[in-house]
Design a binder for these strands. Structure first.
Lengths: 210, 210
DNA sequence: TGATGTGAAGCGGTTCACAGCC
DNA sequence: GGCTGTGAACCGCTTCACATCA
């Protein structure tokens, strides 16, 4: 997020920022900014602030965005293909190397520039194309199997869009984006809003013990 | 998430669960479960546990999922249409009432069962079709304008997929899902992994003051 | 002077541990 | 005996406040 802020500032021609001005500009807290940045090193100059370009370069390197990552998407349904396009465009940091599916009607097709492979060939294709990140965009019922498969193939970083909690070994990073509960949380807001506005649980309750 | 767990258990024919068994089954903490549920009322029976069906009904009501919500999606690009299908299928809780776009080539088309309207007509269509939730799936540069527009039209709950921090008035609920930073966080994991495995920042640093 | 880097305090959410109840 | 509901302890992250330094 800081990286995105810095890119905005850089595009505006700014050479230097203080944590205070950064905070004001992007509705953040200046102490938080300093703590976050100091965690990785001493990038600032007292009395001056941070050099926009130098800081951006530092963060880019820290985040591992100074080189391209190949991504494989499992599930070439609507969500999978939409993600393929989304991440394909995006920055130059990620490249969608391959799509995978188990549906014979889809295998062999090309979506955008990306070929759809048989999920059975995941391991060999992943090795051949140096795929480091897997994106799971399959039905919930298949997600755990797919996860196990990509982990077995040596993948260490997985993004999961299936709305199920998945189990994974410790040294694999799993990031789940749950589009269903995200939307449901909005329904909760509307519901609690319709009633008593405030969180409102438990106005009159409980024989309290003294 | 609890609701999903309960549905699974219910499908398995279970009538009653304790926080302990629920925790074990879904890799959660039992005290957390009890605290969460107790926040909304006393749903359990000591010595027994929770009634699966009754608890599910309670949670469904609390989350506002006991009635259908109409959703409008702004942006009929690939992500917007993918989301329209995703949420259209899903449960019976949400219904995609309309898509909106500013591109004349898209306005008037029908995607799935959903018509694409001119974004200029958002307010009137939203009122006519009783749309309560807006999903923003437009380019980052347009997101704030779209947000302001839907809020002006009386929408109180917004889900944003554009990778920008947006400003919104207090009594509107804004939920941002940032697909870009989600993926970038995986790159960071791979990068820190490649180096020293551990979070590893600052091994040798700082003249400490005494 | 002005801004960083950072101990210390504060705060919200999580976990422990147990009294209370079935 | 078994499990809930909950005060108390705990823990990590956020914010404050200030010593430090260009």
């Amino acid at each position: 997020m800081y990286l995105r802020c810095l890119n905005t500032l850089s595009a505006g021609g700014l050479r230097t920022v203080s944590s205070g001005s950064l905070a004001k500009r992007f509705h953040l807290n200046s102490a938080q900014i300093r703590k976050d940045l100091a965690y990785f090193g001493e990038f600032g100059v007292r009395g001056v602030g941070y050099d926009v370009h130098a800081l951006r370069d530092h963060l880019t390197k820290i985040l591992g965005l100074d080189r391209k990552h190949n991504v494989g998407i499992i599930g070439s349904g609507r969500l999978g293909t939409a993600l393929a396009h989304y991440y394909g465009f995006d920055g130059a940091n990620f490249e969608i190397g391959a799509l995978f599916d188990s549906d014979p009607n889809k295998i062999g097709k090309t979506i955008g520039d990306v070929k759809v492979f048989d999920i059975k060939d995941f391991s060999s294709i992943a090795k051949r194309d140096n795929i480091e990140v897997a994106v799971i965009a399959v039905p919930a019922a298949d997600a755990q199997n797919v996860l196990d498969l990509v982990v077995d193939a040596g993948i260490r970083a997985v993004m999961n869009f299936a709305p199920v909690p998945l189990k994974v070994i410790d040294d694999v990073k799993l990031k789940t984006v749950d589009l269903t509960t995200s939307l449901e949380s909005l329904a909760y807001y509307l519901a609690s809003d319709a009633n008593g506005k405030n969180p409102k649980p438990n106005s009159t309750r409980h024989r309290k013990r003294i």
